[in-house]
Structure formats: C-alpha cells, structure tokens
C-alpha cells in the first residue's frame, strides 16, 4: 500500500499541481492583504483616528441608517439587525472584532475561502486523479498489475487526503506569514466571541462565550478541513464516473457556484438544506451568521455533509472495481 501511495505522490508532484496551488494561494493572500490594508487606511482617514471603538461605532451607525430606509426585504433587514446586535455586544464588552494582525487575517481568509476557494483548489487535484488515467490511457497498465482494483483506488484516495491537508496547511501558513509582514504577528491570544445561535430570526446570546483566537482558529480549520474532504470526495467520485476531466470539473464547479447562489435565495425552499452545496459555510455557525435556511444547525450541516461523503465514497469504490475499461 505504501508503494502505491508513493506512486500516486510521485505523479502528483511531477505534474507540479501543488506548486501551482501554492502560487494561487500566495497571490490571493497578497491581494487580500493589500485590500485589508487599504480598508484600514481608509477608515483611519475617515475617522481621523485608528481607534477601533470609533470605527465600530461608525459601523453601527451605518447599519442603523440602512435599517432606517424603507426599501429593504424582510430577510435582509433581519440579517442586518442580527449583525447590529452582535456589534453592539462587541462594543459593550470591549472586544475588538477585527483585532488587526496576522491571526485575524488568517481567520478572515480561511472563513471566506471555506465555501468556494478551498473547494476549488481541492478540485484541481481531485478532479483528474482517476479521469486523467483514463484520458492518458495509463489506466490499462495500472489495472493489469497484480494489485486489486480497490487497493489502487484507495491509494489514490489517501493521496487526495494528503494533498488536501497540504493545501489547507499552505492556506494557513501563507496567509499567516504573508499578512504578518504588513499587520504584524500579534493577536494569537486575543479573545474572540462565539456561541451566537440564531433561532427564529432572533440572536440567542445565552451561550455566548469568549475563546482565545488560536482556539477559534483550530475550530475554523477543523471545519474547513471537513468541508474540503467532502468536496474532494465528491470531485473524486465524479472523476471515477466521468472519464473526461473537464466535464467532471465543470459539473463540480457548477454545483459549487450554484451553492453560493442558492444560499442567497433558498430561504423559503426548505428541502434545499439537504443539498451539500448550501452546507459548505460551516464557519458561519461559529460566528453566529444566520444560515441560508431556517432551522439549519452546525449538527444538521455536518450530518448532511457526512451523508454525501459516505455516498460518494461507496459509489466510487463500487463503480471503479466493477466497471469494464475500454
């Protein structure tokens, strides 16, 4: 088995996919760092002070002004009100929500990339793990060795899991190191508030508590890893089912993007919560952002994703071991 994984790793590295992914991450991190830096600068100019309390106060006033306007859907109004309450809570308890520094930036970056960017990177690897063997024709050599088919697929899957951990490690390290150059590396122990839950449109603060930033980051990374594994497994399944890499990638991309769009408009279509793609933004549960569909919880989202993961894995292995290769 170790031999087979070694083989898959050799092929993965020879194609320099991970290097490309690393470069993509680095470029994006630099872009976001610059954007963040500009934002901070602008705020400083507008308020004439770098005091975050004043900035937060200003944001609250902004939101209140927007709530005052009458042309606004009820959904949006509810969301804004929840955000407002959260920010008020931060202000009252003297907690800086955007404590500037590399750890905060890393948290912001990971949370924002969890539902589209990281799945996209994982897809780059997962989509052609099996289908490329078909398009190259090397599958014919691979499957005529004295090795059972399920072992070959398992070695590919384990390689995928290794690649996913490397991708997430790269996201973490690069966002920390590169943004730290601009913002400094302080703030690992800053308190972050969590435990907001939203029930029937109301912000429930009964379980709110403070968590040190590094702990919060660990939770974030755990959830992001889980999402990445689920998306990776689905792309892996498509790679087994659809022999063209481009087609498999297209299907997966369409699913991910539709998830991003659906999240904004399915609030009244309740059964959509069983689709995997509206359940990808798990980190929102930690931040107390309202879920796209009423009644979704961290637990329900994890269960839905777990079900999709298991189904994809079963389908991949059954098809791969049974199919005729032409």
């Amino acid at each position: 088995m170790a031999n087979l994984i070694q083989n898959e790793m050799m092929k993965l590295l020879a194609r320099k996919r991970l290097l490309v992914i690393g470069i993509i991450i680095a470029v994006l991190v630099l872009l976001f760092t610059y954007a963040q830096y500009k934002q901070v600068e602008e705020q400083r100019e507008k308020l004439g002070t770098t005091d975050w309390r004043a900035a937060l106060q200003q944001q609250i006033i902004d939101i209140q002004n927007r709530l005052g306007s009458s042309r606004m859907s009820d959904d949006w109004r509810e969301q804004l009100q929840i955000t407002l309450k959260q920010q008020q809570y931060y202000l009252d308890h003297n907690i800086n929500p955007t404590e500037p520094g590399a750890p905060s930036f890393m948290r912001m970056f990971v949370e924002n990339s969890s539902d589209l960017f990281i799945p996209l990177l994982v897809m780059i690897i997962a989509s052609d793990l099996v289908s490329s063997e078909h398009s190259l024709g090397s599958i014919k050599l691979l499957l005529t060795r004295p090795v059972k088919r399920w072992k070959i697929l398992l070695s590919k899957y384990i390689t995928l899991l290794l690649a996913i951990s490397m991708i997430i490690a790269m996201v973490g390290l690069l966002s920390y190191i590169l943004s730290g150059i601009v913002f400094g590396y302080k703030g690992m122990n800053a308190p972050i508030i969590t435990g907001f839950t939203i029930s029937e449109g109301n912000l429930d603060t009964s379980e709110v508590r403070l968590v040190e930033q590094w702990k919060f980051l660990l939770m974030d990374f755990g959830l992001v890893c889980f999402v990445a594994v689920v998306v990776g497994t689905l792309a892996f399944m498509l790679s087994v089912l659809i022999r063209s890499t481009a087609a498999g990638m297209g299907v997966m991309l369409a699913a991910l993007i539709s998830g991003a769009i659906l999240s904004n408009m399915v609030s009244s279509w309740e059964s959509a919560k069983y689709l995997f793609m509206v359940n990808l933004k798990l980190t929102n549960y930690l931040n107390g952002v309202a879920p796209p569909i009423e009644g979704m919880t961290l637990f329900s989202s994890l269960s839905v994703l777990l079900f999709w993961w298991a189904a994809a894995l079963v389908v991949s292995f059954v098809i791969f071991t049974k199919e005729d290769v032409y």
């Binding site: 194609r15 190259l136 024709g137 090397s138 014919k140 050599l141 005529t144």
Partner: peptide, 14 residues
C-alpha cells in the same frame, strides 16, 4: 502476465 494494450500509454510527465 505482461501486456501492452493498444499503444503503450505511459506517463509523459515522468
């Protein structure tokens, strides 16, 4: 058994 089925399709990037 050893075989070549159609063209020997080896990995071009290795």
């Amino acid at each position: 058994m050893g075989c070549i089925v159609e063209n020997p399709e080896l990995y071009p990037f290795l």
